[in-house]
Design a protein around this nucleic acid. Sequence first.
DNA 1: GCCGCTATGTGAAGTGCTTCACAGTAGGCA
DNA 2: TGCCTACTGTGAAGCACTTCACATAGCGGC
Lengths: 229, 229
Amino acid sequence: MNEREELIRDIPLLARLPEDDVRALASRGRVRSYASGTVIFQEGDPGDSLYIVIEGSVRIVVSSAKGEEATVALLGPGECVGDLALLDGRPRSASAIAAEHSRALVVTREEFSRWLTQRPKAAFALLETLSLRVRRTDEALTDFAFLDLAHRLAKRLLDLANAQRDVQARGALAPGARIRTTQAELGSMLGASRESVNKQLNMFAREGWIALSRGSVTLLDPEALRTFA
Amino acid sequence: MNEREELIRDIPLLARLPEDDVRALASRGRVRSYASGTVIFQEGDPGDSLYIVIEGSVRIVVSSAKGEEATVALLGPGECVGDLALLDGRPRSASAIAAEHSRALVVTREEFSRWLTQRPKAAFALLETLSLRVRRTDEALTDFAFLDLAHRLAKRLLDLANAQRDVQARGALAPGARIRTTQAELGSMLGASRESVNKQLNMFAREGWIALSRGSVTLLDPEALRTFA
DNA sequence: GCCGCTATGTGAAGTGCTTCACAGTAGGCA
DNA sequence: TGCCTACTGTGAAGCACTTCACATAGCGGC
């Protein structure tokens, strides 16, 4: 199994597939590089490809009528960008921007759907994964309705730490997990201002739950954060 | 085509299926009745059936740690309750309560998955539909991040009017559409208090866009509402 | 080593929504 | 018929978060 195949095995959208299916898909892709800041695709574009991040990271961004931006997701190696467009044929609902120098495996719509029709079992795995995704989004939605910024922030920090752990080793969440993100970024993920996020982070820091430094947040006491959230 | 089959043709989850697939699924179901207020299933229950509303309506409700409730969805005839659990095997993420006297077609997990394995094309249709659903939820999420109550409320009123239209005749959205819901219900859908919703509705009414009465909202000028939202 | 950019930290004023408190009203039902 | 309950309408006080304004600090490039 080569680099590409190993990679695909780990991506959430496809993780549940049998190995030969994965191999077949990997063989169809083409690797491309993106410099930091490159726009991979923009909101409204026709969605004709799937991108699987190999290295680096990709920000998924939506923008409001007034030009504000919200970061919907930050995807790292092994994760999947632009999968929905391949399944339903709709235009992109968000833009994707390389957050650092990144490489991705690009699979076109034709390649993907040829692959999918040849492997009916893959469709079941995808159904399962998509439905898990609906659940997660629904949960985020109710969090918005019920929780204040402090609690949403705590949850998000744990999520981000977990996502990083998934990509690297997959042990339990150890104290000391370091999340690389700016406070402005966190704000845009949480639908809050940078200033509010800063004040809240400093409260957590005063509790001794996290440590702050330029460009990153370190979880000192994930357990405490979890009970709080 | 009998009542059951006609019904299934119109449900969002299954609408894109070929007719014989629909017929096959309909034949497997069993019709059940629920008195107003009956709990059909509860958050945390194992999810072993799919419910397709035949008549009446069903509220999908999640509750927070503090016991507050939010109405995630209000599903009418032709809509699908508890579909996710069948696809991913997870427990119910929300409760379903009959909002009035209702009847539903119940399909068990075994029946559903036997049906699905026999019909590979159905899986593609479901993938497409589910991915549309992810998009809608994502949109709701960004609305929460960007929009204030007034705009979210305007959008929701239009959505509700559209959903009703889908179920009845499927023409354009005519002025005069009447939405049956209390203001408390609207609040719980929007993550806002009843009082705020009331004040906002009255602002819309003063503009002449809607008319209020006990237990319902009537859209007088959907176009104006749309440009506002 | 210094300049300039970007990120962080923090206070003051403003705003949108909540909660509370209460008054009015429509409709179901005894 | 009249009562009771659920829904609607509204003002006042409070709170969470925003916006604005500015100070400070790390870091890369020259």
